[in-house]
């Protein structure tokens, strides 16, 4: 940075009410001895004056109404998203409970009479296979590996979805609070 530029920077630090390192009188004296830089300072000062005098550009009259409508639409959208997540998370959280209850009932049935419980398991597996292919695959896997695998997977998925829903609801503060 040239000496002139340094002087200009100091001059504008003072104009911007920011502490300048050099005294104003010294600066004026320096500028008086350097007419070329003083001329440049004049241009800078004229520009500064014009910018300071520039008015605030007002917003169009209808803008506030448009923004309020956009905010209301955003609020409705957030609520829909939150409601959807709550339902999905709730269902996913409920499924493991139902499956665990069913597993418990089947377990009791097997203890009492293995012959009665076997067709029920078969029927359930066939139904699941028919409705949800993915669920059916998981059920087969669960049947092969462990009877607890499917409920655990669903419980995990339900938990994750519930946490995602809670996390999103934290970001939707006005919706969360209402």
């Amino acid at each position: 940075m040239s000496n002139c530029e340094q002087q200009l920077q100091q001059l504008f630090l003072a104009l911007d009410r920011h502490p300048a390192t050099e005294h104003a009188a010294l600066r004026r004296r320096w500028l008086a001895q350097h007419p070329q830089c003083a001329s440049l300072a004049q241009t800078w000062l004229l520009m500064d004056e014009r910018l300071r005098a520039a008015p605030l550009q007002p917003a169009p009259d209808a803008l506030a109404i448009e923004i309020v409508q956009a905010v209301l639409e955003q609020r409705r959208h957030d609520r829909r998203v939150l409601a959807g997540l709550t339902v999905v998370g709730g269902v996913m959280s409920l499924l493991p409970t139902l499956l665990l209850s069913l597993a418990l009932l089947i377990g009791i049935g097997l203890l009492i009479n293995p012959a009665i419980a076997a067709p029920i398991i078969g029927f359930l597996l066939a139904s699941m296979r028919g409705v949800f292919i993915l669920l059916s695959l998981l059920t087969t896997l669960a049947h092969t590996l462990s009877p607890w695998l499917l409920p655990l997977l669903l419980l995990t998925a339900g938990g994750i979805l519930t946490l995602v829903g809670l996390g999103l609801s934290r970001n939707l503060s006005p919706v969360r609070a209402s």
Binding site: Q74, R170, S173
Partner: peptide, 10 residues
């Protein structure tokens, strides 16, 4: 303003 509304809790 939409961003401000969404992140007002921050």
């Amino acid at each position: 303003f939409l961003r401000a509304y969404t992140h007002l809790h921050q």
